[in-house]
Design a protein around this nucleic acid. Structure first.
Lengths: 81, 81
DNA sequence: CACCATTTGTTCGTATGTATG
DNA sequence: GCATACATACGAACAAATGGT
């Protein structure tokens, strides 16, 4: 996925991550399943903490862009429902 | 304030805390300012972690019941605005 | 059924940052 | 600068849900 966080920015990392993930979803770069939280952590530079990635995902979840399924993963929501 | 969490309950502590705080607000037991997060931690049995109390407050914030002001505290929202 | 791997969810402790007065 | 209070972040651990063996 490759996400880069600017640590000098006044925008918090969790929001930068959410913004970049949202862009990748809306652009169609991510279509079905998102990488697992641990995979995401390894694909973000510099590597954030688990809860930071979770907070970014929570934003997209609040926006209705993704849904999470414990034991399965996080998925891009296809249609409105 | 005095809040008790049942650790044997399947309901997560952060939600139990949110539920009890909500009840105290709606009943009028808490009318203006909530205790600070650190005070709340000390008034809940068993003593939860800082982030657990924050998560409970976040729920009430999402519900529009309280508003938080950094440097000031967390306040019960009076009227709809 | 048990066991295990994977993934999301919660919690704690601590540290640092931001905002206000 | 200092004190208070909320906000973000990290690392670690454990629980819960799912699916496979």
């Amino acid at each position: 996925v490759e996400i880069t966080v600017d640590v000098t920015s006044p925008v918090y990392p969790y929001r930068q991550i959410a913004d970049q993930l949202r862009a990748k979803i809306l652009s169609g770069e991510i279509t079905d399943r998102l990488p697992s939280l641990w995979q995401l952590m390894d694909q973000i530079e510099p590597r954030p903490g688990y809860n930071t990635v979770r907070k970014a995902i929570a934003i997209l979840k609040d926006e209705g862009l993704v849904v999470t399924a414990p034991g399965h993963g996080t998925f891009v929501r296809r249609g409105p429902e």
